[in-house]
């Protein structure tokens, strides 16, 4: 464990906590894409398959359970909670997220480290996580005013993978130059997708004005 990866995990955890707080405190999920949240549940389910078969550390197991639990409860709130589900922007959150999942799965069948179920599904989760934010970014462009909590949620979500990129650079130089193209390139794509959001988020923060994404 290095400080970059710990910072990345904490940033990721904070983003999820902020989203849960927004939903529970305001009883609203306006501006949040259910498609992205569902993709994240798939990402965690396919990535943490060996949760009960491989014990790494107390931290690793705990964080996996927290990520699974929180992401599933967010989808539950947005789908089934009587008050929250009324606030879901169903008519704007129209991104066909299966169009994202299927190519990722096919790519994982083609490019992976070893052809086993666990490994292919793990690789699928890495590819899927890279593009899972797209429905959310599209929804942000459609929804005129973005509330602060939603903006902070997306920013922290993008920042976590950027910190992981730094972690991978650190590990490359400190752990006998092991190359790990699949997470590296996926993480690079994932972080790049946030580029224009980061630009508008930092601009709105500097000018102390409402966050607005150009349509």
């Amino acid at each position: 464990m290095n400080v970059f990866r710990l910072a990345g995990d904490m940033t990721h955890l904070l983003s999820i906590i902020i989203l849960l707080l927004k939903i529970r405190a305001t009883k609203s999920c306006t501006g949040i894409s259910l498609k992205t949240q569902e993709l994240y549940v798939i990402v965690f389910l396919t990535r943490y398959l060996d949760l009960f078969t491989k014990y790494i550390s107390f931290y690793n197991t705990t964080m996996k359970l927290v990520f699974l639990g929180t992401s599933i409860s967010i989808v539950w709130y947005m789908r089934y909670h009587k008050v929250v589900k009324q606030t879901y922007n169903k008519d704007q959150d129209t991104f066909r997220h299966y169009f994202l999942a299927i190519p990722c799965f096919l790519l994982a069948l083609l490019i992976h480290h070893e052809f086993t179920v666990i490994e292919v599904l793990w690789t699928f989760s890495i590819y899927l996580e890279a593009v899972a934010i797209l429905p959310q970014l599209v929804l942000l462009q459609r929804s005129r005013n973005i509330d602060n909590l939603t903006g902070n949620y997306v920013f922290l979500l993008g920042a976590y993978r950027a910190l992981y990129l730094v972690n991978w650079v650190y590990r490359y130089f400190t752990e006998n130059h092991l190359v790990r193209w699949i997470p590296w390139l996926s993480g690079l794509v994932q972080t790049t997708l946030y580029a224009d959001f980061f630009y508008y988020y930092i601009k709105s923060w500097k000018n102390n004005e409402k966050l607005q994404l150009p349509a």
């Binding site: 995990d9 964080m63 490994e119 790990r180």
Partner: peptide, 10 residues
Amino acid sequence: QEREHLKDEL
């Protein structure tokens, strides 16, 4: 060993 290396990350 490559896969093992990946395993410790979330």
